[in-house]
Design a protein around this nucleic acid. Structure first.
Lengths: 117, 117
DNA sequence: CTCTATCATATCGAGAGACGATATAATCTG
DNA sequence: CAGATTATATCGTCTCTCGATATGATAGAG
């Protein structure tokens, strides 16, 4: 496990899984994640945009600026096939992580119960 | 969710839950975590010791050097009551995190399945 | 019509912390 | 005795989050 990149991995997972549901622009992704998680997950703007730029650079998402004249300028993103593949990997990594973590935690809980008895 | 401190939180969880099972020294904790997770979690030494020092400073663990003459000098740690309390909080935080994450992921998986059908 | 709040994107500096490298030394093994 | 392993410690680098700050468009209030 690369613990260093956990935050990055989680942020990417949240954004990509949101984009997998439907195309949308950055600000909307942040609102969507926050709303769907009932406020549990949030995005700082200073975190959000650099991640989107990185994901686009890596070909995992694709962005297109709205036509001038169609209201406020925004960049709408969609997930690419590579992005979907990477999303599957992230999902699997987090499932593995939590599976392994639970096993240790459950062991401990049992241990605590035993030694407290 | 404070995503920045995820790595820190996970590392602390791994170490504290190990110490909750039995007293041991730092190097042994790293081996223990690695062994019990069948190699999934590992600790770099450059990560391990600073964390132990921090946890001790915060009163979550207590260390005592082995008597000189009892073989190789090592520092044996035990978890404090405050440490056990903090461990419970960490467990709960991670359970919350994964519960919230799964909910979003499951939603997406459903969406993907639906749109692929 | 003007003023303010919100929408929307962007970047920068500071700080935190993991990671690999490096150091030190005792002990065990061949 | 030599090399491997045990055991702790620290330092510099690198990555990344986070809060602050900037910019400007648009919508709604008065």
């Amino acid at each position: 496990m690369d613990t260093q990149s956990l935050a990055r991995s989680l942020n990417e997972l949240l954004l990509l899984s949101t984009l997998a549901r439907s195309r949308m622009h950055g600000y909307q992704m942040a609102l969507d994640v926050e709303e769907r998680s009932r406020g549990f997950f949030t995005f700082n703007h200073g975190t959000l945009y650099p991640i989107l730029h990185r994901l686009e650079k890596e070909g995992l998402i694709e962005g297109a600026w709205s036509e001038p004249g169609e209201g406020r300028a925004r960049k709408e993103y969609g997930i690419t096939p590579a992005g979907r593949q990477y999303l599957r990997e992230l999902r699997s990594e987090w499932a593995d992580l939590y599976r392994n973590l639970s096993r240790l935690i459950d062991d401990d809980a049992q241990q605590v119960r035993t030694s407290a008895a």
